[in-house]
């Protein structure tokens, strides 16, 4: 896995802009509070979460749905808590 450097982190921040307001708000809070503490593996997992479609992503963040991947669910739990 390539290193997630400062530039890639900025790209990830931009990709946290979504089509749904609810996600914008949750992800904005997360970027302000938890994002900078993520290690390389967690950053990669968060980046994978961002590939979800907005409606699926919101269902997961709202606790209406779960994901099979435990690593992704670890990040989801952080998002649910912000």
């Amino acid at each position: 896995m390539t290193l997630i450097d400062a530039t890639e982190k900025k790209r990830i921040r931009w990709r946290s802009r979504r089509g749904l307001l609810e996600l914008d708000i949750v992800l904005e809070r997360f970027l302000a509070r938890g994002f900078d503490e993520l290690d390389q593996d967690q950053l990669a997992d968060y980046r994978r979460l961002l590939a979800l479609d907005d409606n699926d992503f919101l269902d997961v963040v709202n606790g209406k749905a779960d994901l099979d991947d435990p690593a992704l669910m670890a990040i989801v739990r952080l998002l649910r808590a912000v």
Binding site: R15, R18, G19, L20, L21, D53, D54, N55
Partner: peptide, 11 residues
């Protein structure tokens, strides 16, 4: 500005 399927039409 964002990936097309993440446009606000999605809302």
């Amino acid at each position: 500005k964002v990936f097309p399927t993440r446009s606000h039409t999605v809302a």
